[in-house]
């Protein structure tokens, strides 16, 4: 059985997650072997997924963690926090 490009596209996301049935996976694989365009679509999609998962994409603002813990200390109402930083708000 041969499948067309358009059908292959529908499987690319599951293919990347390796959640296709063995039969479908093989069909897609066989198509990819000889189809330059679908291979390029798969490679580019995989590459984009790899890039977006990289921690460098979202930079934390300088001092984010410090401000977060300072606010938590103020508002959680812990006794230790109160003693350290009693701002009265």
């Amino acid at each position: 059985m041969v499948i067309e490009c358009k059908h292959v596209w529908n499987y690319l996301s599951d293919y990347l997650d390796d959640s296709l049935s063995p039969e479908t996976k093989e069909l897609v694989q066989r198509h990819l072997e000889h189809c330059e365009i679908c291979s390029a679509i798969l490679d580019s999609t995989r590459n984009i997924v790899v890039l977006t998962a990289d921690d460098r994409v979202f930079e934390l603002p300088v001092g984010y963690s410090e401000r977060l813990h300072a606010r938590l200390a103020r508002e959680m109402g812990g006794d230790a926090a109160k003693a350290r930083e009693d701002t009265g708000d």
Binding site: W9, I37, A40, I41, S44, N47, L51, R56, V57, E59
Partner: peptide
């Protein structure tokens, strides 16, 4: 939703993320 059709995809290395415009 159709993907962009390409033949000549060259992998973007993760070092490209050092550049702000890529991020």
């Amino acid at each position: 939703v159709s993907p962009a059709l390409l033949r000549d995809w060259r992998e973007v290395p993760s070092e490209a993320l050092e550049r702000k415009e890529i991020r």
